[in-house]
Every structure is written in structure tokens, then in C-alpha cells.
Amino acid sequence: MLRDIDARELIPQREPILMTQTLYEASGNDARTGFVISQDNMFLEDGHLSEMGVIENMAQSAAATAGINTYINGEKPVLGYIGEIKKCIFHRLPEAGETLTAEVHYISEAAGVVLYNISSHTENGPCAECRMKVFLEK
């Protein structure tokens, strides 16, 4: 089991749009990530992380999960793109200072496209859930 990996080792996104910080743990093809929402996050609107920020956190968490094998092989992170978002429901938009945790659950993979179920929450309750296809650039 892998624990507490800096997300920058797994994905090529950087500030100001680095929207996940730490891969807390990974087991099998599933993982859990964490992200402290800073006061100067580019997706804040009226003190809340916007829907776009919440989606990007889930997308980067999925891409980080997909990047684990690259990391284990000692290679540089590859670009991961969102191919499709489905059934994305927003429960609550978190505020600056909260820690957003994303749970990434592997569904299947075909032709370089990985399908994940993802949900996110903070210490104050659930934020969002969706199904996402991630393309990895080879």
C-alpha cells in the first residue's frame, strides 16, 4: 500500500490550478486524496469553492490515481484529460479552510481510458459525486 505521496509526483498540474495536494493512500486501483482549500484558490466564489473547483479536484484526484503506476516505475507524470463527466451531483460547496477529501474508485479500463466513480467530502459533510472517464497521454 502506498501512503502520503505529493500529488505533484503524480500529475503535471501546478499552481494556480493544482487542485489536489496529497494522495493519502492507494490500494489496488483505488485511492483517497486530500486538498486544503486556501484563501487564494482561483475557484473561490463568495468564500465557497465553485462547482468547477469541486470538479477539478475530483478530476485531478482521478488522474493522480491513474498516475500511480507511472510513479512506481519512476517515470515523470503524464497528462491526464477528462474525457467525460456523468451523473455529477453537487451536495454542498466547501469553504476556504476546509479539507476536501476525494475517494476514487476504479470501475474499468479500455483503450487507454479509465473509468472511475469519485466522491468528495470535507469535515463538514459530502460535497459531490460523479463518474468520470480519464484519458492518459502515452
Partner: peptide
Amino acid sequence: CDVYRGHFPGHPISPGVCNIGMIR
């Protein structure tokens, strides 16, 4: 736009979420 400093360094690609935000 400032977003391209990080998406991706030296390799600007418009983030999907920004295009969704543009529609909103």
C-alpha cells in the same frame, strides 16, 4: 490567463472545467 502557468507549464491547454465555467 493566469491558469496557463499551471495547466500546463510551458504547454497551455484550456482546462475542461474552465470551459464549463464559461458556459455557466
